[in-house]
Simulated scan of single mutants.
Amino acid sequence: MEHALSEHEQLFFNDGYLLGKEAAKNSYREEDLFQAMKQQYKAIDQLIDSISTVARQQDMPIHCQKGCSYCCHQAVFANSYELHYLGHLMQQALAKEEMKLIYDKAHSKNKITSDLEEKAMLNYKSPCPLLTDGSCSVYEARPMACRIYLSTKLSTCREYYQNPENEENYPALLDFPLMAGRMMNEGFMAALKEEGIEIAEFRMEEGLQNLLASH
């Protein structure tokens, strides 16, 4: 890590690290990875639920809800083990026709974003290939980045969607879940790397295109 971790950061890093060790304990078997991923996502989801409850009690409602998909139009990144788990759930939940449609949307979007410079790519707004009728088609398996994005002010999300170049505006996100999810992923990756497992990060459309190319 590049800086000394706070107490909270260290706790979430350790949680992710232990789960990463579980994922890698038997030569990184799929069943071990998927079980560890389920536990990690369950832990962060429970934390999000608790934070949302406290926020409502303190008159700071979370504006994220089904049908609101502003954040599903911006750049999202997922790493290789998240995409592996995502692919597993997609094969269980989606028909071949749905998989083909997602691949086509991912391929089309990736053709655009792969040619953009970083700032332009981060500002580019286009629906996630997994978005269907305003909702994620594989919500249960969405990556960590999608789980920890909690906005307390809808107007800031709308402005960021409509005018991403406005540097005076950014979605009013809660910091704690962003930190918790990031540190859990850092710990999980650290454990895998200790076992010699290579981890790569992809734009969602790039990862989905690669994932579904053989289906």
Rank of each mutant, 00 (worst) to 15 (best):
K100H: 08
G16E: 00
N26D: 14
D59P: 04
M60E: 13
K25D: 06
Y139K: 09
Y70G: 03
A180K: 08
E168D: 10
A55I: 02
G16Y: 02
S137M: 09
L19N: 03
A23E: 05
D104H: 09
S126F: 09
E22Q: 09
F13Y: 14
H107T: 10
E22Y: 00
L208P: 01
Q91I: 07
Q39G: 04
S6C: 03
E201C: 14
E31K: 11
C136V: 04
V138I: 13
F77V: 11
I112K: 12
A75F: 00
M183S: 01
E159P: 07
K96C: 00
N14S: 11
T132C: 05
Y103R: 04
E159Q: 15
A93H: 02
A141T: 07
P177T: 03
L178M: 15
E82H: 03
N169E: 12
D45P: 00
T156H: 06
S155Y: 07
H215V: 08
S108I: 03
S52K: 12
H63W: 08
Y81A: 02
E31R: 09
T156D: 12
F77H: 05
K66Y: 07
L173Y: 06
A106R: 01
S69C: 15
Q162G: 07
A141I: 09
I48T: 10
N166E: 14
I112F: 10
A36P: 01
E82D: 05
D49N: 13
F12D: 00
A191I: 06
V76S: 13
C68S: 01
E198A: 13
H63Q: 14
C157V: 03
M90S: 08
A191F: 05
A43N: 10
L19H: 04
P143S: 11
K25F: 10
M99W: 01
M144L: 09
E198N: 13
D49V: 08
M184P: 07
Q46I: 00
E201G: 12
H63I: 05
G67H: 13
F202L: 11
F176D: 07
L154Y: 06
A190W: 03
I199K: 03
L83Q: 08
K42N: 11
L19T: 03
A24C: 05
Q65I: 10
Y17S: 00
E30K: 14
G134H: 06
S69V: 06
L174D: 03
E168Q: 14
F188I: 00
L173N: 06
S80E: 01
E198F: 06
